[in-house]
Design a protein around this nucleic acid. Sequence first.
DNA 1: CCCCATGTTGTAGG
DNA 2: TCCTACAACATGGG
Length: 265
Amino acid sequence: MPELPEVESFRRYFEATALGQKVVRLEINAPKIVQSPIAEVESALINHTLVSTDRIGKYLFVQTSANKTLMLHFGMTGELEYFRDIDLTPRFTRVLFWLENGFLAFTDPRKFGKLAVGNSIAEFQQAKKLSTDALTITLTEFAKNLGKRKMPIKSALLDQKVAAGVGNWIADEILFQAKIHPQTLVWQLTTEQIALMYQKMQAILRLAVQHEAYYRDFPRDYLIHSRGWTDEEPANCPNCDSKIPHIYISGRASYYCEQCQNLII
DNA sequence: CCCCATGTTGTAGG
DNA sequence: TCCTACAACATGGG
């Protein structure tokens, strides 16, 4: 479930299970996920140690002792799973890292995930035109990246050039808590509204990372409980109890409260 | 069977 | 050239 908080959990999981270990073998079951030539991936990893991890937005980076950077992106359904017994290899394993002391599987049923090797994080960040991570970005940069564009704010928040790591539910949650209608055009937002979105974004991300992205533990007044998401009952607005509708904005389902989030046009 | 899905990217059109 | 909308990607699950 990879938005910024989930990927941060994956990063910590990677550190806890695989860091400091040597890769002894690599098994690639879904070649389309691998974006670099196999020979480059192998020379960056095989017989090399996994030295450190970093994260920008939804991208996880691993430095190897070959002085190369491994990039992992989890698409919609990617996850990491460490295990000791090869017979326990999970379903949907697309890439399997054989380590000295166990196995790390990159699982991804939908195969939208990506894995690549490069020389540095900066190289990837430039190539993807990726913004600063949403947890460390300043208000000034956030406002500058939003600019005066004419698209709905919901679409702009999903643009990884604005604040790296914001995904669909986080964008909805930011707008709900800031009481801004998702279809409000960016150029119409006031300085105060942008500052408020920024504060909410920081608070939501910090809380989600603290809870390891386990949304059931989020505060009761978060919109996320109201979207009829996975196996939970859809609920009404935690503030005003009105029904939460959903609309599509540039192809993505967007949940909001008609009473609490005003559309200014 | 039909529809939906947590993301990114290439392309078409203005 | 810049900006925006949207289909496409591949697959499982309700």
